[in-house]
């Protein structure tokens, strides 16, 4: 057989493909005790305040603990995030913190880390539980219980409106676990506890203020009888508020707006009376995440799911909370 360019390329491709098929069995890789760790943090994107706060928190904590942080930004691409994790594995990190951009595409990244002997801690977002298990494929998940967040907002809304109203829902990015769970939590609660309430329309605003505004604007125009807007995050809620005002209505009076995250601008909106409530979703993972790392190296058992307690903000406590909001 002639060794020409084509054969060489096919051979290399085949070889690489073969290497990745090595099956992954066994438990989560262990972590040695060290004074200084090299950790990887593969962030999903940096284009909203929540993410920026999360990154800042991780970097600060890493500096405090004297750890070398390898930081990457996937610019909203799940494929790039997988590549980032692979490059961290190649750089020989001890531990990886990973907020998966989407539930399914990041499974291979988690498996690769396991094969390479690097434990992974999922922060703030989860992977598809049927395909990867905590304690087996990755160490644990730490984050908010998104379903609970949706439920709490639903409960508050039902109480505030007496179980009556027509709802427009602004969803988060398609395929992201917070969007899926916050929808599930809210929608199920409404269906179960408030049969008189109806969700008129539910579209994705991509967790962004401008897109949320445009979608809200369109949906409000098509459904002028809406009385409630439920946004999966504060950014979209703020966009919805702008849309409501542009339509000549008063947010808080004509239309009740509720959301999740508890960011500074959102809390300010509560103080101003425009936003009804916002369930906290704290982005400051740094301390808790590194605590888990050290505990694991020490040999402690780590529970598979660690839920951050979220506070709940509305007019009753917004003013006090404002200074510490992210």
């Amino acid at each position: 057989m002639i060794i020409d360019r084509r054969t060489l390329l096919i051979g290399t491709a085949g070889g690489v493909a073969g290497l990745t098929i090595i099956p992954a069995f066994g438990q989560v890789p262990p972590l040695k005790k060290k004074d200084h760790y090299k950790v990887g943090f593969a962030q999903t994107e940096s284009n909203n305040p929540w993410r920026l706060a999360q990154t800042a928190s991780m970097k600060d904590e890493a500096a405090k603990r004297g750890a070398q942080l390898v930081y990457t930004d996937a610019a909203s691409s799940a494929a790039k995030q997988v590549a980032d994790v692979n490059s961290m594995i190649a750089q020989g990190v001890d531990f990886i913190f990973l907020p998966p951009r989407e539930e399914k595409p990041l499974i291979p990244a988690v498996m690769n880390a396991k094969k390479a002997g690097i434990p992974v801690l999922l922060v703030d977002r989860n992977v598809d539980p049927s395909l990867a298990k905590p304690g087996v494929d990755f160490l644990a998940f730490i984050g908010s219980n998104f379903v609970l967040e949706g439920q709490r907002v639903a409960d508050w809304t039902i109480e505030k409106t007496g179980g009556k109203g027509k709802i427009i829902e602004l969803e988060g990015s398609v395929g992201a676990s917070p969007a899926n769970d916050r929808k599930k939590g809210f929608d199920d609660t409404i269906k179960a506890k408030a049969p008189d309430m109806v969700i008129l329309a539910s579209q994705s605003g991509d967790f962004a203020r401008d897109k949320g505004r445009q979608v809200a604007e369109t949906l409000l125009q098509a459904h002028p009888d809406a009385t409630i807007v439920y946004a999966h995050n504060d950014e979209m809620a703020l966009g919805a508020i702008a849309a409501i005002e542009a339509a000549g209505k008063v947010p808080g009076k004509d239309i009740l707006v509720v959301s999740i995250d508890g960011e500074k601008d959102g809390v300010q909106a509560i103080v101003d009376g425009k936003l009804g409530c916002s369930c906290e979703c704290n982005p400051r993972f740094g301390p808790a995440a590194f605590d888990i790392l050290y505990k694991y190296a020490n040999g402690d058992t780590i529970p598979p799911m660690i839920i951050n307690p979220d506070r709940f903000f509305d007019a009753s406590n917004a003013k006090e909370v404002l200074p510490t909001a992210f």
């Binding site: 284009n47 962004a208 203020r209 401008d210 505004r213 702008a242």
Partner: peptide, 12 residues
């Protein structure tokens, strides 16, 4: 765009 949104996010 930034006027309508009362905010400017260079990322978006």
């Amino acid at each position: 765009v930034v006027s309508i949104n009362s905010s400017s996010d260079a990322n978006l």
